[in-house]
Amino acid sequence: MEEYGFFLSFNGLEDLFRLPVNPETLEIKESGDSKSYTIVGLGEINAIAYPKLTEITIDSVFPAQHYPFVVVGKKGQNRLLRPFEYVLMIQKWMKSRRPIRFVLSGVSLKGEREDSSAPNDFALNMAASIESFSWKLSAGTSGDIEYSLSLKKYVFYQASPVKIVKGEAKTEPKRASDKTAPKTYTMKAGDNLWSIAKKILGDGQKYKVIQKLNGIKDSELKKLPIGKVLKLP
């Protein structure tokens, strides 16, 4: 089996770390949401519904030193942090009420299956909410922290603008992102409030919201200077 790694990131890789010790097992829960009904003359039936959100449980340790089983390096971005640094980062993410991203990569099952046509690699990349995080200091382990982290798949949702084309309603799909929307925008050459609203808010018609928020008069709309910092809703 090749080397594999578990990664957690937040706000479009603003924060990122690899789990320093790979968990011995990774519990992934997939369940349905079917409901049973009793029909007169037929008995009990089962109505199959959409599956519930995937749940993942990780049990491992944040080590206080470089043991032989630690999988991160000593220098650079992928370095071993102090145990409490990991704890504080996860607590900060929970307080933000924003999803994180969980990535499992590099697993190779080559040689472990008789069916050579079966896929050899497995990877998982999903946005997730932190449902619970518990940790404890282990006695006699020089400051190591044992932890349990429970995640649930996060599905991005938002209202989409609807356009009527030849009597048919069509929605404009928006790309999901786990990055926090910016609070300000600095104007560049060729910018106007409509193009900014389209690019940042996904709807050019929302330029009036930006105009009102920044106290811009109608007579100033065509005279906004390059470099002007605009507050965003």
Rank of each mutant, 00 (worst) to 15 (best):
D191W: 06
I56E: 11
K228T: 07
W194E: 00
P233W: 06
T180K: 15
Q91R: 06
F156T: 04
K95W: 02
V209L: 12
A139D: 13
W194N: 02
Y50D: 15
I100N: 03
R82G: 11
F102V: 02
S34Q: 13
F6S: 06
T171Q: 11
G73P: 04
D121Q: 10
E24G: 15
K179C: 03
G143N: 08
K206I: 02
L137P: 02
Y154C: 03
S117P: 04
I196M: 04
W194L: 01
H66S: 10
I200E: 15
A128H: 08
P161A: 15
S148E: 14
Q65I: 01
R113K: 07
P173V: 07
G76I: 02
S105A: 13
P233D: 05
S31Q: 15
G5W: 10
R97L: 10
P182R: 12
F17Y: 02
K52E: 14
A127L: 12
L80C: 09
V229Q: 10
G143T: 05
S60H: 02
K35D: 11
L224K: 02
R101F: 00
P63N: 13
L232F: 01
K174D: 09
A47Y: 05
I164A: 06
L26V: 15
Y50C: 01
R101L: 01
K29R: 14
S148L: 04
V70H: 03
E2P: 11
E30H: 14
Y154D: 09
S132H: 06
G41D: 08
L8K: 01
